[in-house]
Amino acid sequence: MSAIEQGSRAPDFDLPRDGGGNVSLSQLAGKKVVLYFYPKDDTPGCTNEAMDFTALSDEFAANDAVVVGVSPDPVSKHEKFIAKHGLGVILASDEETTMLQAYGVWKEKSMYGRTYMGVERSTFLIDASGTVAKVWPKVKVKGHAQEVLEAVKAL
């Protein structure tokens, strides 16, 4: 699957989320959506990223933006992750990787000579009309949430 590019229509999704129920792009229509994809709950990089977005959550909200983190972890794991670190972002579960594939972030990775499929840390900023305004592939966590917030403010 090719990656989603800036200026293209964001693929809709409907995924189970923390706290019960689902989150979908269509229910967030009219708001800016920060969609960040991360490999795994409660690992160092993913924890820092979630905490950075949480620390800025009031500013995102003040700029009419909703932050949604997506990983293949089950909802039960997301809820433990949120409780452990006091996270303030929506976490959606894509255990079947359908959405991860639709956004082009489910990639072949390798570690210690082993090849496996996993999430390439990426962020998509979707404007209020559902168009991808900016894409950050292969995200480095440090300073990323602040950079995304600046892009949200510029929209």
Results as ranks from 00 to 15, higher is better:
Ile126Ala: 04
Pro39Arg: 01
Gln146Ile: 08
Ile4Ala: 10
Thr97Met: 07
Asp64Cys: 02
Ala29Arg: 15
Asp127Trp: 03
Asn48Ala: 15
Lys142Leu: 01
Val68Asn: 07
Tyr38His: 10
Leu87Ile: 09
Val67Ala: 13
Phe13Thr: 10
Ile82Cys: 09
Ala10Tyr: 01
Pro39Ala: 04
Ile90Glu: 12
Val23Ile: 15
Val148Leu: 08
Gln27His: 02
Met1Trp: 06
Lys142Tyr: 05
Lys140Pro: 01
Ala10Val: 02
Asn48Cys: 07
Lys31Glu: 08
Thr131Ala: 01
Glu96Cys: 02
Thr97Leu: 00
Gly143Ser: 03
Leu25Glu: 03
Ser8Phe: 00
Ile90Tyr: 01
Thr54Phe: 08
Val34Tyr: 08
Leu149Ser: 04
Glu120Phe: 03
Ala29Glu: 12
His85Ile: 07
Gln6Asp: 08
Leu155Asp: 04
Pro74His: 00
Gly88Arg: 11
Tyr116Thr: 12
Ala55Gly: 14
Thr54Ile: 09
Val33Gly: 08
Ser57Ile: 12
Tyr38Thr: 10
Lys134His: 11
Ser76Val: 11
Met111Gly: 15
Lys80Glu: 10
Val119Ala: 05
Gly88Gln: 07
Pro44Asn: 12
Met1Asn: 13
Ala55Ile: 08
Leu91Val: 09
Ala145Ser: 11
Pro72Val: 00
Gln146Arg: 13
Ala50Ser: 09
Gln101Thr: 15
Val139Trp: 02
Phe53Met: 00
Ala154Lys: 14
Ile82Trp: 08
Ser57Ala: 13
Phe37Leu: 09
Gly19Met: 02
Glu59His: 10
Thr98Asp: 15
Thr98Arg: 04
Val148Glu: 13
Ala3Tyr: 10
Val75Tyr: 05
Trp136Cys: 12
Gly86His: 02
Met111Phe: 14
Gly30Tyr: 03
Leu35Val: 06
Glu147Ile: 01
Met1Pro: 14
Gly69Gln: 08
Lys40Phe: 06
Val152His: 06
Val34Asn: 11
Phe60Gln: 01
Ala3Ile: 09
Val89Trp: 01
Pro11Trp: 02
Tyr103Ser: 13
Pro11Thr: 03
Val23Pro: 07
His85Tyr: 09
Val148Gln: 12
Gly88Val: 08
Pro137Leu: 05
Leu25Met: 05
Gly7Arg: 05
Glu120Ala: 14
Ala151Cys: 10
Asp64Gln: 15
Ile90Lys: 09
Asp73Thr: 11
Lys40Arg: 15
Glu147Ser: 14
Ser71Ala: 14
Pro72Leu: 00
Ile4Thr: 11
Thr115Gln: 14
Leu87Phe: 03
Ala62His: 09
Glu49Lys: 03
Ala55Val: 04
Lys142Val: 10
